[in-house]
């Protein structure tokens, strides 16, 4: 076991993937000498060279578009989008090309491209540096969407994502980059499309992913003192969704609260709530409740504590679920 931060765990995962397969490339803005603005690619260019760790011109559509071309030539590019709010210039290439080209070719083309996106708030950043754009991508058929929440998962998930032949949007919780945990560098991870129950409980199910998993675990620990036994599920994969784990849990607990940083309206939680109501209708003691961002643009950082779900807002929703 090795103690790693989440950022370093991804770095180690990238390193392992690059050692394993010479076709794996890392590309993005400042990923070379600087090692990325969060240092996630630190040291990779030094060890693998400028042809495999590519500092690109500053244009996100160009990063994804050329990554598609490299993938067509047999490479496995891992693209870094520097911040969540900067992915939109690349949205056209991701949505109209990356997601659709395999179908367009009737399966002749595989596009094993991973798009890494540091996401979410909580670091006191300026505008466009704290967003949670996952729902734009879960809505796009042809993409797989992953969100890691902890160092051990981050290490295996990034490697499994690179090995997968489908394009993957890979969200990294930027405020958790510095969280440390023990990581077994030899153990295989849970399959990429599986959710994980990270805390068992029988009273209510909390569904979360990325940065909110830690928040939900803290809420569950706090609720323990009040005699509430909360189950927490880390979804890990948003598309496809591991409905088996979710359904089993909610049918058992009868209550569910979904937590994410993105705005609640038309957010990923809406999909979860709808699916749970379809599958767990007769088991539900309360409607599925959602905790998330407001229907406002992400606020200036001095206001972000009001915007971001925290332990108290999660527990408030749990209380409301029990009030039915």
């Amino acid at each position: 076991m090795t103690t790693l931060t989440l950022g370093k765990a991804i770095n180690e995962g990238l390193r392992r993937a690059m050692e394993e397969d010479p076709k794996v490339l890392v590309m993005g803005e400042d990923v070379g000498k600087l090692g990325g603005v969060f240092r996630v690619t630190d040291g990779l260019q030094k060890d693998f060279g400028e042809d495999r760790v590519i500092d690109t011109p500053l244009a996100e559509s160009g990063i994804i578009g050329t990554a598609i071309g490299l993938a067509l030539r047999g490479y496995r590019p891992v693209c870094e989008i520097q911040f969540d709010g900067f992915v939109f210039p690349a949205a056209d290439q991701i949505i109209t090309q990356l997601a659709k080209m395999p179908l367009r070719s009737l399966g002749a083309v595989k596009l094993p491209v991973v798009v890494r996106i540091p996401c979410g708030g909580g670091i006191g950043a300026v505008e466009h540096h704290s967003e949670s754009p996952e729902a734009y991508f879960t809505h796009t058929a042809g993409l797989r969407v992953m969100a890691c929440s902890n160092p051990a998962d981050a290490y295996t998930m990034i490697q499994d994502a690179i090995r997968c032949d489908d394009p993957i949007i890979f969200f990294e919780p930027k405020r958790r980059y510095w969280d440390k945990a023990e990581v077994d560098l030899t153990a295989p991870g849970l399959p990429l499309d599986r959710a994980r129950t990270v805390r068992h409980g029988d009273d209510v199910t909390l569904l979360a992913y990325g940065p909110m998993v830690k928040t939900c675990l803290a809420a569950a620990t706090a609720a323990e003192g009040e005699g509430r036994n909360i189950e927490v599920i880390d979804l890990r994969s948003l598309n496809p969704l591991d409905m088996g784990v979710i359904t089993e849990s909610v049918q058992r607990t009868g209550r569910c609260v979904v937590v994410h940083e993105a705005p609640v309206f038309s957010g990923f939680g809406a999909e979860l709530a709808a699916r749970i109501s379809e599958r767990c209708f007769y088991h539900l003691e309360a409607p599925v409740l959602r905790v998330g961002g407001f229907s406002t643009p992400y606020p200036p950082s001095r206001l972000e504590d009001h915007y971001l779900p925290d332990l108290d807002r999660v527990l408030d929703a749990v209380d409301r679920a029990f009030a039915y």
Partner: peptide, 12 residues
């Protein structure tokens, strides 16, 4: 869109 794919392919 294909102009970027071509350049990426050429880089390969």
């Amino acid at each position: 869109s294909q102009a970027l794919h071509a350049v990426g392919y050429a880089m390969g």
